[in-house]
Design a protein around this nucleic acid. Structure first.
Lengths: 362, 362
DNA sequence: CTGTTAGCGCATTCAT
DNA sequence: ATGAATGCGCTAACAG
């Protein structure tokens, strides 16, 4: 039995010190607002006010409170706060299992940075149509666990019984416009037309388009724009091969391309990954890029500058898409923006690199 | 005025139907447990039990409750539940701003999949040492908003005043072992030795190592293992160039390499991105890979198979790292696993590709 | 400007 | 097996 055993707090790591203070309070689970109130000699209401609306408390008292907060290592309980306030300062971000990490990770970064600055947290949820996870995502919308949602998945979670849209929370969709949400999109149709014009200017007339998944928003917009534009040129042809945005899909498309009797001279892929898989494969088969075929992508992922050859592509403002989406959602929560104020459109930039060249050049 | 105006609910979208039902309940914000109880003719306690412990309620009553739940579109309020139960079924995952998206996105996928299966949500938080975000992360640990944390950042958020470790919640660190947490790591030291042996077998003796950020866990482990191993070979030399895991760092290293009087014949990069940036640059300068220099990476990101040439690397089980981390944390929460049961070690695999060849071959 | 009080919605005692 | 009542921790009315 140790009697009079003295702990020298100054030599202990602060964690130990704090833990010790914590145990001096009412119960085992860390200090509550009441503990702070007692320590500071004020009521719990004053503590609450000193923390959430400092201006409403006399400086002298406020300082006493903040001192007590620091001394006890008090952090307000989030659940109690949420229950009382009716909001959680938490946002749900939904993605799909097979997302394009190089593209979306930077969007996510933009979201996180913006939300964090506003004191909001971000719950990430992956789902694919049909799996149980989809139901959980919807439940979360109705559970009061979150204040709003950002959709990166291109579609809303919807089990047929109910949809995440029904919860009545503000929702923003980024990159793909989802009906019933405020969409943050880019001028992707115009962008792909600019790309096509660049290739047309280089003398290209036989085009091949590497498609994204059928029904996908971006796929639909890009294809429609490209097709409409080339339809206006009597001398141009446009073939199409289906794909799913992955590099293996680019490989598969390349095999089809290599088997074609009359090969197109210009390939426009619906995203960079497919373009990169395509280039790798045709080059391995002895088809020079851009010598024999020009290849362009879409998105402007980082690797577009490191593949061989560097990839002509359309650079989307990924971070800004995320930031604008988060900003917009915060405004909807604040009531200063509404669905009708959308969609928000950002501008892409054509980035020329070594994978495209005028017909016959390269 | 519309009298006797009948709405045909069957032709309305379900969302409309549900919204209608919701308004039949006590207040504006959706049905509460009391509404369900009234609708089913039971007490709130029975509703609660029917939902959380169905076996404890007589089947007849249980069915009535579940029916009422469905009819009203009831979803339990998460904040109230958390406050009452003392846990949130939410996990915090911390990353750093400059993470390697190709590597960590798949780890994240493993985490999310595993947590979701167990009914847990995942809050994502980016931080960098010194910014305000770091404090928020720590606050979250103390706020009762989360039940535990997974560290992908390699270091614990720590302001000097307090650290996320002090909250007393279970914490797992993945890929880099963080003191005070249960670490999920790989046999990276052994892996890099296997890689070195492969190059030694090919006749290489002059090595160059492209380093990660000083102090980084993986950097430290890999460098120590490689250095110790080559130190055992009297005929081998090992140079080192600093970097920060990015492709531009690989470019910078390549410039230094090109300026060397006697160039090493084998380059081992601490991650794939640097190896890829390096290859791109030396090839552009006319140095053949692997003809003049063999290059190897570390991590096994997807793009390693699509760069030019394909990259010899060490493939880490990224999804499994995430899954194991989440699994482990869940066990810690359940009390069936503790810090002392770690670390958990997964095994990497050497993946040979076109960027390495025996000395003088290629 | 500050203290007292009530209640956010739920899970869990304690009775029955 | 079920119901009544309590309190998780906090903030917002209301009083003073």
């Amino acid at each position: 039995m140790l009697i009079g055993f003295e702990i020298d707090y100054k030599t202990l790591p602060y964690s130990r010190r704090e833990r010790n203070l914590v145990t001096q309070t009412t119960n085992g689970r860390g200090p509550k607002i009441r503990d702070v109130a007692l320590h500071a000699g004020v009521s719990t209401a004053t503590v609450s006010r000193a923390l959430t609306d400092p201006a409403s408390v006399r400086p002298a008292l406020r300082d006493k409170v903040l001192e007590a907060v620091k001394a006890l290592g008090y952090t307000p309980n989030a659940a109690a706060r949420s229950l009382r306030a009716g909001r959680t300062r938490t946002i749900l971000v939904v993605t799909r299992k097979r997302w394009s990490a190089p593209f979306f990770s930077e969007v996510l970064n933009g979201i996180d940075t913006t939300l964090a600055r506003a004191g909001h947290a971000m719950i990430l949820g992956n789902f694919d149509a049909g799996d149980r996870r989809e139901e959980e995502i919807i439940d979360m919308m109705f559970s009061g666990h979150i204040d709003g949602a950002i959709i990166l998945s291109g579609i809303a979670a919807d089990t047929g019984t109910r949809s995440m849209l029904d919860a009545g929370l503000p929702i923003v969709s980024i990159s793909a416009a989802v009906a019933g949400t405020l969409a943050i999109v880019t001028d992707e149709g115009e962008s792909i037309v600019r790309l096509a014009d660049h290739l047309l200017d280089g003398g290209h007339r036989r085009f091949l388009y590497l498609a994204g998944p059928l029904g996908n928003y971006n796929e639909t917009v890009r294809w429609a724009a490209l097709r409409a534009h080339l339809a206006g040129r009597a001398d141009a042809t446009l073939a199409r091969i289906e794909g799913d945005y992955t590099m293996p899909a680019g490989i598969a498309a390349a095999k089809d391309f290599l088997a074609m009797a009359e090969r197109p001279s210009a390939v426009v892929a619906c995203n960079d990954e497919m373009a990169i898989g395509f280039m790798k494969t045709v080059r391995a088969a002895g088809v020079a890029v851009p010598g024999a075929v020009s290849v362009a992508g879409f998105d402007g992922i980082e690797f577009a500058d490191y593949c061989e050859p560097t990839l002509t592509t359309i650079r989307q403002p990924r971070f800004e898409l995320g930031a604008a989406g988060a900003e917009t959602l915060l405004k909807m929560l604040a009531g200063t923006m509404a669905l009708a104020d959308g969609p928000v459109r950002l501008v892409n930039r054509l980035r020329l690199a070594d994978s495209t060249a005028p017909l016959g050049a390269g």
